[in-house]
Design a protein around this nucleic acid. Structure first.
Length: 195
DNA sequence: CGGCCGATCCACT
DNA sequence: GTGGATCGGCCGA
């Protein structure tokens, strides 16, 4: 689709190992194109949510509601929901249909469509802080919770591999943020941060 | 139907 | 470091 790299296809997302996908998404480039406003950002922080056995997951114990039912679809679709009444949090669903796993985008670095981001944030200049935090990533990229269900193999939202080589040394692995309610699963090493 | 609360962010002390 | 914003979804009655 573009010269810098190739678009991740369905096969990438249906891998059964959501933790591996979360790690490998670091350094990939998340794109949106809403209303002819192209925006791209290098993914610098992700978290894995590992299906029905993960107490931190919205799909824990097989729970399925109107909001999270998208998680049960085949990997490669967007699960975006409203948090704290204000913030849209963006995930990409992974795994096969019926296995409700997802990766949350927590931070990114804008590399394309900077003017579009400035317009959305009503600012003159972007700082790294503007795209650090899952709510802020969604805002900068123009992603709204009503966009939930979009396919990452369509032309509104997608991810590209630009060939950035991320070595193991550049990745920090920690427990996930804001999931203290998840008991022993709160300490799982499911958060990946690019230095 | 009512009440509670969150995979957060920001302003303020 | 702390608390308020803000509202759709979820659960219990």
């Amino acid at each position: 689709m573009r010269s810098k790299g190739f678009v991740l296809n369905k096969d990438f997302y249906i891998d059964p190992d959501v933790v591996k996908i979360a790690r490998s998404l670091l350094g990939k480039v998340l794109f949106t194109n809403f209303n002819c406003m192209l925006t791209g950002a290098i993914i610098t922080e992700t978290e894995a949510y590992n299906g029905i056995n993960d107490k931190a997951s919205h799909a824990y114990s097989g729970k399925k509601t109107k909001r999270n039912s998208i998680m049960y679809e085949q990997g490669g679709v967007a699960y975006i929901y409203l948090c704290y009444g204000i913030h849209s949090l963006t995930n990409v669903v992974t795994g096969e249909e019926g296995n409700p796993q997802a990766v949350l985008f927590r931070a990114a670095e804008v590399v394309e469509g900077e003017l579009n981001v400035l317009k959305r944030l009503d600012k003159e200049q972007i700082t790294v802080n503007d795209t650090k935090g899952p709510g802020k990533v969604s805002k900068a990229m123009g992603i709204h919770y009503s966009d939930t269900g979009l396919s990452f193999t369509d032309d509104k939202i997608w991810i590209e591999d630009h060939g950035l080589d991320i070595s193991q040394r550049e990745i920090i692995i920690t427990p996930r943020i804001g999931v203290g309610y998840a008991g022993d699963d709160a300490s799982l090493p499911y958060r990946f941060v690019l230095k």
